[in-house]
Design a protein around this nucleic acid. Structure first.
Length: 432
RNA sequence: GGAGAGGUGGCUGAGCGGCCGAAAGCACCCGCCUUGAAAGCGGGCCCCGUCGAAAGGCGGGCGGGGGUUCGAAUCCCUCCCUCUCCGCCA
């Protein structure tokens, strides 16, 4: 019967700062969820004191009955009275339960508040470029597209993928498969050896609670692959298992920050993306990714966001891949995120920059959903941690970028220096 | 898949119808002692909600949900999870 801290935003805080919250959610262009929630919150607030008064009376009278009974007195009349009281309580309880269930459902649909530093805008075209690293590789020939290169080199086989699993699946073979594996190892080594992340190898399917904890559910269920006959979902990103690793935990401040990294395949239906990125392997139902996540105190989370972004950027820099950083504007921000940077890698074959990583600070949004807290050193009180995560990187798209940026006139592809130790010193991919 | 055992505070673990939000220990915090520390001693210390300016009051929470009862951590039902043994299997 207790009000388990439900969702996302701190409702009390929302209520006490309504105008500000309205204004900030308005920047996202999403106010509906909030307005649906407010009358329910009101109802709850009038119901609770009423109920508590009755329960208090019941408690006192029950105790009295016990005492009288022990002394051998007659208590039947009193019992009847309390029975009546209990009926009243039960009615109010079920009313409250109903209100709270609807409040909870409504609360889960309200997105996070954007941080003040998030640029205002409507959509992707309004995302400012924060910085650009490297330069577009120059070549004296018409750059080919990765699917063209991949098929010619015999390392990417979308037809085989379709045969086995259908559209938007691919089979990597030979050096293609090895390249993918080399990249995973390279990325994990970098994050664990140099950036202090603890490597985790989690389950690739998780329970519903975990999906709610990080915000994929209930809103995006249709994008997820659900396991038939089970209440399990294939992970859409390692963010889900990594963040939920600390679900329901009470940490101490000295434990923070905590940094995890994991490789997992990621499974997404990508509903609503029909016709987008149909060519090649840019958008797949299954792709590999190395993820980095951090848990930290609220005061430090924006410093951690910059660091985490740097950790992801370092992968691209070591690989010598030209990219840029954009800050997502309020209209393009993901549901759970307070602030997000995207890394966009240059793809000469597409003649555009394409998202290869997304680095976000969720502040307390996920922590509140997943109930991840810590005890503050100063006053010994508990508070929600802040959670962050980023791709470092999407491996399939890294393969795409390498193929396209490192391609040679003869159709072969040079291997980035940093990757050669992972490929027995191989410096060039040629037809196999 | 079969057979048992169990899920209680940050942790370990007692309690098995009212005096239990819960013994004890550990951890943690404050103080005394000490040159400092440890040990020892004294005190404090669960979470959430709700009312309140605050002090504080009140309510709820002993895996989740439901039931019995004047009253449930304690009894009943149900679901989930963990552990042990057997079987099967990479």
């Amino acid at each position: 019967m207790c009000y388990h801290p439900p969702a996302m935003l701190d409702l009390k805080h929302v209520y006490e700062h309504l105008d500000e919250v309205r204004e900030r959610l308005g920047r996202r262009g999403n106010l509906g969820g909030l307005e649906a929630l407010l009358p329910l919150y009101e109802q709850r607030r009038t119901l609770i004191p009423k109920l508590e008064g009755l329960r208090s009376r019941r408690k006192v009278q029950s105790e009295a009955i016990g005492k009288v009974q022990k002394a051998g007195g007659d208590v039947e009349a009193e019992k009847a009275k309390v029975r009546e009281l209990a009926g009243e309580i039960a009615r109010l309880e079920s009313e409250l339960q109903d209100v709270e269930a609807r409040l909870h459902a409504a609360a889960l649909l309200v997105p996070n508040l954007p941080h003040e530093s998030v640029p205002k805008g409507m959509g992707p075209e309004d995302n400012p470029v924060v910085r650009v690293w490297g330069e577009k590789p120059t070549c004296n020939f018409e750059p080919r597209d990765h699917s063209d290169l991949g098929e010619t080199l015999g390392i990417l086989d979308p037809k085989a993928g379709a045969k086995l699993a259908g559209a938007r699946f691919v089979v990597s073979r030979g050096l293609g498969a090895r390249l993918e594996r080399a990249l995973i190892n390279f990325m994990l080594d970098l994050q664990t050896r140099e950036h202090g992340y603890l490597e985790i190898l989690p389950p690739f399917m998780v329970k519903r609670d975990s999906m709610i904890g990080t915000g994929q559910l209930p809103k995006f269920e249709e994008d997820m692959f659900k396991v038939e006959g089970w209440d399990h979902f294939l992970v859409p990103t390692a963010e889900v298992p990594l963040t939920n690793l600390l679900r329901e935990e009470l940490l101490s401040e000295e434990d923070l920050p905590i940094k995890y990294t994991a490789y997992t395949p990621c499974f997404r239906k990508e509903a609503g993306s029909y016709g987008k990125d149909v060519k090649g392997i840019i958008r797949q139902h299954q792709f590999n990714k190395v993820e980095i996540v951090r848990f930290c105190t609220p005061e430090t989370s924006y410093v951690h966001l910059e660091e985490l972004l740097g950790n992801a950027e370092e992968v691209l820099r070591r690989l010598g891949l030209h990219y840029r950083v954009v800050a997502l504007c309020t209209g393009d921000l993901g549901f759970s995120s307070a602030k997000t940077y995207d890394l966009e890698v240059w793809l000469p074959g597409q003649n555009e920059y394409k998202e290869i990583s997304s680095c976000s600070n969720f502040e307390a949004f996920q922590a509140r959903r997943a109930n991840i807290r810590y005890r503050r050193k100063a006053d010994r009180k508990t508070d929600f941690v802040h959670t962050l995560n980023g791709s470092a990187l999407a491996v399939g798209r890294t393969v795409v970028a390498i193929l396209e940026q490192y391609q040679q006139a003869d159709g072969s592809v040079r291997v980035p220096e940093a990757l050669r130790p992972y490929l027995d010193g191989l410096d060039r991919i040629t037809r196999c």
